[in-house]
Computed example of a mutant assay.
Amino acid sequence: MIRTADVPRDGSHADKEATSAASVPGRVRSRYLLSLFAGLFGALAMFCLTLFALDRTGNLPPPAFSNISCADEKLSFMRDNPIQSPNLLIIGSSVAWRHVDGNVLTEAMPEVRPMNGAFCGLFANQSTYVGHWLLDRQPSIQSVVMIADPQDFAGCWRVPTAVFNREHVDPYVYENASPWGHYMRYFSPKSLARNALTVKAQRAGEIEWDPLVFNRFGDGPLDTPNTRELLYGRPDPLDASCFEALRGMSARLAQEGRELMVVSTPLHPVWKEKYDPDGTFLADFDKRIMETLNATGGTYWNADKDWSTPVTSFVDAVHMRWSVVREFTAALAEQMRDTAIAPVPSPSLETAKVP
């Protein structure tokens, strides 16, 4: 027998069950969102703590503006060690970074205030991109020297010309903007972990073949008594877009009344014998450089042909040891004087010297 009193007449029990069931998805969504945000904030906090710990121990790499560790480290050096009113800019790849000693330049030409704006691992289009950026930021520059090896002009089509985003790098380097936001913008856990394992030793010059050490001009000494394999193999065909990038740099400097010298760095004799035995590749390189500069302006010094150094000067196919770089830089200074590339003293600086 069913008691009438046990059955709700108005359906309120059924309504309560329906309401309760309807609220379950809402509670699930709230818990999901709460868990999601808690996970995100937890991960962010962990990332920030990791950066802080790496910074305190000297193992924090710079923000990955280019994701090329030596280039990003160069930007960090420029931020922390600004060069006041440079009048000579060195650009290029690692051979420009490692084959100039600014101390020798200033000894040979006291009026010169050099700035080494070369970054490792760059092709010619990327080197000129960096050059244009520094010329925009450093109006005191009167002369530019681009030091290159032929392989810098073979393969520009493969790489993006913009090595980094200038809008992000400008405030970082020149306005002392906080770097922390860039670690989030260029978030790359794998790259960060890899670089964090070695950057402290590299900065101390303890990684023989990959030191991240700079002198006050931004030069990068490769100071080792040892020699490694040639390392660099057969070059790719020369790329017309590389020379077009040089043409753009040359045209700009000519228009602005500034000087340009392109220098072909010395190459290991064994590399030349092995990969260019008849000399046609290097001859074509010389020809294209001179054609480019003749069209827009600039001078060319083929140091590989005109400057003699023994085979023991090289640590691989294209890099010379630092003990030889002083001699090479002295020869470069002589070439600059002979071709009137050396910057002239600023009138304001001369006036300031008068008592």
Rank of each mutant, 00 (worst) to 15 (best):
Asp6Gln: 05
Val270Ala: 14
Asp149Val: 15
Lys200Tyr: 07
His268Ile: 03
Asp170Ala: 12
Glu167Met: 03
Thr161Ile: 09
Asp149Ser: 12
Leu134Gly: 08
Ala71Glu: 12
Leu230Ile: 09
Phe164Pro: 03
Trp180Leu: 11
Gly220Val: 01
Ile141Asn: 00
Ile341Glu: 06
Arg9Thr: 10
Ile91Phe: 08
Ala196Ser: 15
Leu105Thr: 03
Leu222Lys: 04
Gly279Lys: 05
Thr57Ile: 02
Val130Lys: 04
Pro347Asp: 13
Glu73Phe: 00
Pro189Phe: 05
Leu230Thr: 09
Asp149Cys: 10
Asp316Asn: 13
Met290Thr: 14
Ala22Ser: 11
Thr265Tyr: 14
Glu350Cys: 04
Leu60Thr: 01
Gly297Tyr: 10
Glu327Gly: 13
Trp157His: 11
Val163Pro: 04
Pro8Phe: 08
Arg252Asn: 03
Leu89Met: 11
Lys274Ala: 10
Asp55Arg: 12
Leu33Lys: 11
Gln138Val: 03
Gly121Cys: 10
Thr224Leu: 02
Gln142Cys: 00
Tyr300Asp: 06
Ala96Cys: 02
Ala14His: 08
Phe217Pro: 02
Pro347Asn: 08
Ala71Gly: 12
His13Val: 15
Pro63Gln: 00
Thr351Tyr: 06
Asn59Arg: 13
Tyr129Ser: 07
Pro237His: 04
Arg3Ser: 09
Ser264Met: 13
Pro160Arg: 04
Phe217Trp: 15
Phe285Tyr: 15
Arg137Asp: 00
Val7Pro: 04
Ala295Lys: 11
Arg252Glu: 14
Pro62Ile: 02
Pro62Ser: 08
Ala21Ser: 04
Ser140Met: 01
Glu111Cys: 07
Leu34Cys: 10
Arg258Tyr: 06
Ser93His: 14
Gly233Val: 03
Ser66Met: 05
Pro269Gly: 03
Pro237Leu: 02
Asp239Glu: 05
Thr329Gly: 07
Ala177Leu: 05
Tyr32Trp: 14
His168Thr: 07
Ser348Ala: 15
Pro139Cys: 01
Pro150Ile: 06
Leu105Ile: 13
Phe243Asn: 01
Leu282His: 10
Leu231Ala: 12
Glu334Gln: 15
Thr50Asn: 09
Pro343Gly: 07
Ile2Val: 13
Thr57Gly: 01
Ala204His: 09
Ala5Ser: 13
Ala251Asp: 12
Val270Ser: 13
Val95Cys: 03
Gln202Phe: 07
Val213Gln: 06
Glu273Met: 11
Ile341Pro: 07
Pro179Ala: 10
Met78Ile: 08
Leu222Val: 08
Asn67Ser: 15
Asn294Val: 00
Ser250Asn: 06
Tyr32Leu: 15
Pro160Leu: 02
Leu282Thr: 14
Ser30Asp: 08
Asp210Tyr: 14
Ser346Asn: 11
Gly233Ile: 05
Ala22Gln: 11
Ser93Phe: 05
